[in-house]
Design a protein around this nucleic acid. Structure first.
Lengths: 224, 224
DNA sequence: CAATTTGAAAATGTATACAAAATTAATTGA
DNA sequence: TCAATTAATTTTGTATACATTTTCAAATTG
């Protein structure tokens, strides 16, 4: 399978995870020999990982001076949701224009059913519900992005996720009622996609992401 | 200066240019030893460049199988302008909300004056006019992107430019009259930014990029 | 003759040695 | 004592050797 995501799998992923989780806070200097000793590999794969993460925007780089975990201002974190809204809105529009594939329609349909079932059955929030909802949610958004048939868009959307503390479920704390609202929005978007209503799909998706943003911002304020 | 753009400067830039200009068409296998011989450096900087360009989305990569110049469908090329419109629209909104810095206001003001002067003085298109307009145009868009104070956004916008045959001036053939229209749009956007009208600035910018898209698509059809 | 296996060639992945630059420590001078 | 210069150390940049994987062609087998 051809892709540009797979690489020095373990090293790159390990460092990325450390940065996104906050284990390597902003300003941390990432030195090659030190990392190579810690991770038990030579400098070569370390360098590859640093270059990849720098290109992904997680590290600052200066020639002959190395890599530093970059700062992520709160403002930028909020902006990331605006960007996501714009990009996913475009993805919804493209998908409506181009139409869902049979398999994609099936995947989204199933994830919606699964989400509805768990949301009607449960009266309270727990890890099980959150896991299912997180899964179906990711499936919904990923499938639409994929159906947009635009690699640039997919790549950018992925980038907008790779910001510390915005990794999907970590911070966002929805109430059960809010989850039901988000589910309903998913359903409306799905209908717009099936009806090939491009503008409607885009608008609904933008508003949907905006709703998610509000919850994320609220959760962020509560945390601090 | 800290950035993540500067790197194996020459090699990366050389390969990128070759890809964007079409010198290395889609499907071309980029082999490390071959490139290292051609460019007169070892495999190490070649690998760094390939990894960077892969992360930038210009190359496909498969582990143990190397890098290939990826395909850029026409549809994606058109979509790139939609994405640019959304991103630059957001940049305009953020900039209106946050306000232009003194220097940024000056830069844009001067580029607008310069553009107006050349567009009123000239009766016909020539390389000189095109060069000036291209310069002032880039200055306008870059400054707004910079003023948005969002690195993620800037990074994505830059990516949306790095697609073969969409490198700004190459294909786009405006008439003098159209250039004047684009200039007027620039001016209206500038006014909206000064007035801190966020929504207006975003809408105007989106429409402006859409106008550019139309010309690009038209030029593309004429070329083929 | 077609399909599979096998082996040589070539390509990528990793480790390491050396070069160049930057950082830090030490020395010198007033 | 403090500033500037110099030396030593550390760190990144590059080249190259070796390991592993893939590729491709020749040979074997049915």
């Amino acid at each position: 399978m051809i892709s540009n995501a797979t690489r020095s799998l373990s090293v790159t992923d390990h460092l990325r995870e450390s940065i996104l989780s906050g284990g390597l806070p902003a300003g941390t200097k990432l030195q090659e020999v030190r990392l190579s000793e810690e991770l038990g590999v030579s400098r070569t794969p370390i360098r590859a990982a640093l270059q990849t993460l720098s290109a992904a925007g997680l590290l600052d780089y200066a020639p002959n001076r190395g890599y530093v975990v970059r700062e992520f201002p709160i403002s930028e974190l909020v902006d990331a949701y605006e960007i996501r809204g714009a990009l996913e809105g475009l993805a919804a529009r493209f998908t409506a224009e181009r139409g869902l594939g049979d398999n994609q329609r099936l995947v989204i349909g199933q994830s919606l059913t699964k989400g509805r079932d768990i949301l009607t059955a449960s009266d309270l929030m727990n890890d099980h519900v959150l896991a299912i909802i997180g899964e179906t949610n990711a499936s919904f958004h990923d499938t639409i992005m994929e159906a947009s048939l635009n690699r640039l868009l997919s790549q950018m959307a992925q980038m907008s996720f790779q910001i510390p503390r915005v990794s999907n479920r970590n911070i966002i704390a929805f109430s059960l009622d809010e989850l039901r609202q988000r589910h309903d929005e998913h359903y409306l978007i799905y209908e717009a996609l099936l009806a090939r209503s491009a503008t409607k799909a885009e608008t609904l998706m933008r508003d949907h992401v905006a709703s998610i943003k509000f919850a994320a911002v609220r959760a962020l304020r509560e945390t601090r």
